[in-house]
Computed example of a mutant assay.
Amino acid sequence: MSRYVALVALLALSVAPAGFAQQDENAARQQLDAIGQEIESAAQRLSATGSARDSAERELKEVETALADTHRRLDTLQAERRQLNDETTQLRQHRDRLESERTDQYAALGQQLSALYRLGPTPQLKLLLNQGDPAELDRMQAYMNRLSAARQRRLEAIARLDTALADTQRELNVRQTRLDTLSAELEEQSALLARRTSERRGVVATLDDRYGSEEERLADLNQSREDAEQVLRDIQAEMAKLAKPTPTTDIISTQGDLPWPVQGAISSDFHHRDGVHYNGIVIQASAGTPVTAVHPGRVVFADWMRGFGNLLIIDHGDQIMTLHAHLQQFSVRAGQQVSRGDEIGRVGNSGGQTRTALYFEVRRGGEPINPQRWIARR
């Protein structure tokens, strides 16, 4: 079985609702997870098709892949730092409440001790020697018993608050230590990002210098597009041969109403110019802007491909696929199911681009169609 057949066959398995209906929920989830892992493996084999043709392109792939990894690591570290900061703030607020409560308990205990002081030393003995009204004697004894019990409760509450405050302070110390470690790692990753960005500029300059003319550059870009389109045509052709087609996600009914994968101005229209951007649109956006899935589907490709950089492809069923190129990084992996609005990556300039933007394609039956007919008007 070819690598394309393997991928498509696995895609077909991901949807058999009748089969899943006969299994319990956990078994169905395990089966879907296994299928996703197989698709991820198949997509990794497919990524070899996008290998660079020469050493300069291989170097670009390496540095841009490393950049994507660094961006992901920075995002992870920053997210952890935000969470730790939130937890630290909550712990400090909790500590302040505990300290305030302990202060109140000490004040109440002071009032109780003051009341005992006013009774003088050995109040129980005075009660026994008092030859007054027995009813008054009983009331005084009951008052002293309640006062003593209340004092004991206050002392126990203060002890509990002291323990809670000590635990809270230990948790704060642990988080502060982790925050200090994170700050050092963030600084290290930021420096690494700067170095890799500089390396990328050098590689891109080398790639640009190899073209003797604009015609040579366009010819190379067109060849990159043809290589990528051949992969897509092969996948789509194998899908068409399946006895059970890829499941529908009802994407056809959403034509003209799909959300934009990212907000921004269109700098290149469908069939506007030659090169890799010929079959889609280019949407300008700042680096790091989240890119979202326009419709539910399954990721079938997430890897670097020459001309496109970090390329992510989602199969939506009904022979519809969407392509997202020049990503700074991926937020999902091959084989993963996504829902409308899920973040799938970040806007970048991978593939040797000089400006940050998202390249977006819609394909039906393997053929490119105008994305602006599918996404909502603004």
Rank of each mutant, 00 (worst) to 15 (best):
G19F: 07
G50E: 00
L67A: 10
S253R: 15
I344C: 12
G335Q: 03
T181D: 10
Q255N: 14
R306H: 01
E156Y: 03
L327H: 06
L67T: 09
T88M: 00
V300Y: 00
E99M: 04
A159G: 08
S339D: 12
N279W: 02
R298G: 00
T65A: 06
S339H: 10
S213L: 01
G345E: 03
A9Y: 04
Q263T: 15
V203E: 01
A150P: 07
M321A: 10
S213Q: 08
A240Y: 11
R118E: 12
R92H: 07
I313F: 02
A21R: 11
Q44C: 07
A43H: 07
L113R: 13
G345A: 13
R217G: 05
A243L: 13
L258H: 08
Q131T: 09
R29V: 09
Q78C: 04
E361K: 08
D167R: 12
S148N: 15
R153M: 07
G36P: 05
S286R: 12
Q37T: 06
T322L: 01
R102L: 08
E25N: 05
T322R: 01
Q328N: 07
R102C: 00
H271G: 09
T122I: 06
T289S: 08
D257S: 15
S190A: 03
D227G: 00
L98E: 11
D269V: 02
T248V: 12
S114G: 15
V291M: 10
L98V: 06
L218V: 15
H316Q: 01
F270L: 11
W304H: 07
G335W: 02
G19C: 06
P123Q: 06
N222M: 10
L46S: 09
L161N: 07
P259Q: 12
L182T: 04
V299E: 02
R3D: 10
